[in-house]
Simulated assay, not measured.
Amino acid sequence: MPWVSTVAAFGVLACLTLALPAAAKSMWNTDKLYTECSRSSARCASYLAAVVDTANEAAVIATQKLVICLPPRAKVEKLRKVVLKELEVQPQARASSAASVALRALKRKWPCAKQ
């Protein structure tokens, strides 16, 4: 059952997050996100794909609803451009975690219809 491994992974991540000091809760900060996405790096692509997958998986587990509804055959390059634009247009967003900025930008660009 694939959901069992997903639930286990979230449990491990939750435990790790609780064990970290407050200043170390984010693996990436927004400066790292901006740097990697400005270069069109594979790290940026991987990070954004993980944000979408994790957000939707967590939402489905909690509510049975998706939070980001990408169009069919969406390219990670488009995700990168959306998040990079958010970081450039909203410089104050750099005070937030990289994941929260990416998630906010992607949810705004591709919201899901009321389910």
Rank of each mutant, 00 (worst) to 15 (best):
residue 101 V to S: 05
residue 76 V to N: 08
residue 91 P to G: 11
residue 16 L to E: 15
residue 25 K to E: 10
residue 51 V to H: 03
residue 68 I to E: 06
residue 98 A to M: 01
residue 68 I to V: 09
residue 39 R to F: 06
residue 47 Y to Q: 02
residue 85 K to Q: 14
residue 54 T to L: 09
residue 112 C to I: 03
residue 83 V to H: 04
residue 108 R to P: 05
residue 68 I to N: 08
residue 36 E to S: 07
residue 27 M to K: 14
residue 83 V to K: 03
residue 23 A to F: 09
residue 98 A to N: 06
residue 100 S to D: 14
residue 88 E to Q: 15
residue 19 A to C: 08
residue 72 P to G: 06
residue 95 A to Y: 04
residue 104 R to V: 06
residue 19 A to G: 11
residue 77 E to L: 11
residue 35 T to H: 15
residue 21 P to M: 01
residue 108 R to Q: 15
residue 23 A to L: 07
residue 54 T to S: 15
residue 107 K to P: 02
residue 89 V to E: 14
residue 21 P to D: 06
residue 38 S to D: 12
residue 12 V to R: 08
residue 74 A to W: 10
residue 18 L to S: 11
residue 69 C to R: 07
residue 88 E to T: 06
residue 88 E to C: 09
residue 77 E to K: 12
residue 45 A to H: 14
residue 100 S to R: 08
residue 59 A to K: 06
residue 22 A to I: 01
residue 83 V to P: 01
residue 32 K to E: 12
residue 20 L to D: 13
residue 11 G to L: 10
residue 35 T to M: 08
residue 77 E to P: 00
residue 19 A to E: 07
residue 6 T to V: 00
residue 23 A to H: 11
residue 109 K to H: 04
residue 7 V to S: 12
residue 19 A to S: 13
residue 27 M to V: 07
residue 34 Y to W: 13
residue 90 Q to A: 12
residue 45 A to Y: 15
residue 65 K to Y: 12
residue 38 S to C: 04
residue 37 C to A: 03
residue 86 E to N: 04
residue 73 R to A: 13
residue 28 W to G: 09
residue 111 P to M: 07
residue 85 K to V: 01
residue 18 L to Q: 11
residue 62 A to G: 08
residue 21 P to L: 03
residue 32 K to Q: 10
residue 49 A to K: 10
residue 27 M to G: 07
residue 55 A to L: 07
residue 74 A to Y: 08
residue 8 A to R: 13
residue 62 A to N: 10
residue 81 K to W: 09
residue 89 V to R: 11
residue 95 A to T: 00
residue 89 V to N: 14
residue 56 N to C: 05
residue 23 A to G: 07
residue 86 E to W: 01
residue 85 K to C: 01
residue 53 D to F: 15
residue 56 N to L: 07
residue 109 K to G: 02
residue 81 K to D: 14
residue 71 P to I: 00
residue 45 A to T: 05
residue 110 W to L: 03
residue 80 R to D: 06
residue 79 L to W: 04
residue 100 S to L: 02
residue 91 P to Y: 09
residue 78 K to V: 01
residue 59 A to Q: 06
residue 102 A to G: 06
residue 43 R to A: 15
residue 11 G to C: 13
residue 57 E to A: 12
residue 74 A to H: 04
residue 29 N to H: 11
residue 73 R to C: 05
residue 33 L to I: 03
residue 102 A to D: 08
residue 69 C to T: 01
residue 86 E to V: 00
residue 47 Y to S: 06
residue 75 K to Q: 15
residue 35 T to P: 04
